[in-house]
Design a protein around this nucleic acid. Structure first.
Lengths: 146, 146
DNA sequence: CCTTGACCTTCCCATCATGGGAAGGACTAA
DNA sequence: TTAGTCCTTCCCATGATGGGAAGGTCAAGG
């Protein structure tokens, strides 16, 4: 089948299928004489696998590892579980960061009248020095999580 | 003061200060004769404002709006609150998406022995057709949230 | 047989916020 | 004066995704 049909069958856009091929997440599709990509049911199966992993938030790198483990029938289930647990930890870290932001914002918002008057604890909270000193010089601040 | 000092004082990297100037989030810094950027305490205050808003997950666009409201002493607190509430809603949407992924993954992982044996419900869960049909053709799948 | 429309191809660009690094100029302390 | 640290601009990379242009291919219907 053509790339469009494979896309519909797998739920992965044609753009992404070509991209996944380019970055070698999947092997190059067979081509017709006129260089159209063709896909087998097996290829679609792989694409579905990718879509499900992606929908669970796995990165391309993690999916590469998962695909390799999927194909390796003799691998230990512990190998798969390790990737999953690591990803769960990552998700929980992000959830915690989001929860912290939400909590702070809700706190500020709850003290804001939200009417026509100008005084607003939210914006004052951003403006006031809260004794934090120099900010976290981290490569990955809270913002990257959102 | 120079950009390096302003960076340390505000917690915003020099790279980002220049970037924020470029995209007009902040106004162009004054320059010395040798075209070094110089910053006043007031400029640093603005940068701190930006850093705090950023740490709470606001986008550059939202920060533009917040800065304008900050400077406008006659604006209604409702205007600020609206932005904050919208952002809270966005954060909660992301938190929900992450929670859904985490739940699914934990469920799969809990049924995986995690030993040397090859059978693994996690990877089988990705591989099996679960009757989902064509995937969500959305521009923004779950994955974008992470 | 030819046209039309839907598909396919590759290539380049944009997103968002951030950092890396190179090449070269400016300043400061010894 | 020299060494070292700062500054400047410019270009490139990230990750996963989409948009769109320019042009080739294919199938159905007149």
């Amino acid at each position: 089948m053509n790339i469009g049909e494979a896309s519909k069958a797998s739920g992965v856009s044609t753009k992404m299928i070509r991209y996944y091929e380019q970055i070698k997440l999947i092997s190059p599709a067979h081509r017709t004489e006129s260089s159209y990509r063709t896909y087998t049911d097996n290829d679609v199966h792989t694409l579905q696998f990718i879509r499900r992993a992606r929908d669970l938030g796995f990165s391309v790198e993690q999916m590469k590892a998962l695909l390799a483990l999927w194909r390796d029938r003799s691998r230990a289930s512990a190998d798969v579980k390790a990737i999953a647990l690591e990803h769960i930890a990552e998700l929980e870290r992000k959830a915690a960061a989001i929860a912290a932001m939400t909590k702070t914002l809700k706190h500020l918002a709850s003290h804001c009248h939200g009417d026509e008057r100008p005084d607003c604890p939210i914006i004052e909270g951003f403006a006031e020095t809260l004794g934090e000193g120099p900010g976290v010089p981290s490569k990955f601040g809270l913002a990257n999580v959102v």
